Simulated assay, not measured.
Amino acid sequence: MRVTAYVIHTRPFQEGKVMLDLFSFEMGLLRGVYRLPKKGIRVLPSPFVRYDVELKGRSELKTISLIEPLHKPIRIEGIHLYASLYIHELLSRLITSAIPIADLFTLYEWLLQSVEKSVPVAPLLRRFEVGLFQELGMPIDMAYTGSGEDVLASQMYRFDFKLGLRPFLGDKPKQLPVMFVEGRVAIGYMAGEWSNKDVLLMSKELHRKWLDYLLSGKKIEARKLLPNAPYNDDRLYGVPRFSVKKGDV
């Protein structure tokens, strides 16, 4: 089997061998064992390089018989490097092995091209996370209320993962929601308005909680490398509340 892939994780396997997690165009996440060259400089396959890879074997863990770079490594530094490692961890932990996900692969390449140009990190991560949730079959739907009604820009809603958006009428709910969201912020989120600071602030908190839910509360280690200030803005009954701030309209 021959695929086009990026190395998203490397770890020692046996003497002279390493295990590679590969994110491929043709088959999504693949894992294989690669024997390092016996002669010359033993250079590990690098991240941020598109490789031509040949794999052998019928089991889930393949043998990598060939791995050749198709271009020079993309140079990524600082916060953009940490953001890329965060994305690699999400892919390694959430993507099912050997399932084609060409759209997410294309989105990943867009992400690499963007971080190489030092595009602001937060909008890139939120856009990629949205694509990841869609590929997992677990998208966040704020296009309509849980009962199928159109979202009204001026209405405040409470949001739950299972029930979606429900109008908030002012009384304290018996069970507190994940967050309170003004309709225009929810509409902006579904439109992908990542340059809108209200949408971006809400989506950061929303995606953090959604990932915790998908991973059953297990920690994402790469988060430690990224700015990790807790939400410290508007709250209602102790729950984050997101609305368009005065002057943002």
Rank of each mutant, 00 (worst) to 15 (best):
A5F: 05
F13M: 03
Q14M: 05
E15K: 00
E15V: 04
M19C: 11
M19T: 09
D21S: 15
L22K: 01
F23M: 10
F25Y: 13
E26I: 12
L29Y: 07
L30D: 04
V33D: 01
Y34H: 13
Y34L: 15
R35H: 01
L36F: 02
L36N: 00
L36A: 07
K38D: 04
K39W: 00
G40Y: 02
I41P: 03
R50P: 01
D52C: 06
V53E: 07
E54I: 08
E54C: 06
E60H: 09
K62C: 03
T63C: 03
L66P: 01
I67R: 02
E68L: 14
E68R: 15
L70Q: 11
P73Q: 00
I74G: 04
R75K: 12
I76Y: 07
E77K: 05
E77M: 08
G78D: 14
Y82C: 14
S84D: 04
L85A: 09
Y86D: 07
Y86C: 08
I87V: 15
E89H: 05
L90P: 09
R93D: 08
I95A: 03
I99L: 14
I99E: 13
I99M: 13
P100L: 08
I101W: 00
F105M: 10
L112P: 07
Q113A: 13
S114L: 06
S114I: 10
K117H: 09
S118E: 15
V119M: 13
V119G: 05
V119K: 12
V119P: 03
P123W: 06
R126K: 10
R126M: 11
R127I: 09
F128N: 04
E129I: 07
G131T: 09
L132N: 00
F133P: 00
E135M: 11
A143N: 13
A143K: 15
S147M: 10
S147C: 06
E149R: 11
E149H: 12
D150M: 13
A153H: 03
Q155Y: 09
M156V: 14
M156H: 07
Y157I: 10
F161G: 05
G164M: 01
P167H: 08
K172S: 14
Q175P: 00
P177M: 12
M179T: 09
R184L: 12
R184Q: 15
A186H: 06
A186S: 10
G188W: 01
M190L: 12
A191S: 12
G192K: 05
N196L: 02
D198Y: 01
V199W: 00
L200K: 03
L201S: 15
L201P: 04
S203Q: 11
S203Y: 01
H207C: 05
H207F: 12
K209V: 05
D212L: 04
L214A: 02
K218E: 09
K218H: 02
I220V: 11
I220S: 00
E221Q: 02
A222P: 06
K224V: 12
L226A: 08
P227S: 09
N228S: 15
N228E: 11
N228V: 07
P230R: 03
Y231F: 11
D233M: 08
D233C: 04
D234N: 09
D234Y: 10
V239N: 05
V244Y: 06
K246C: 03
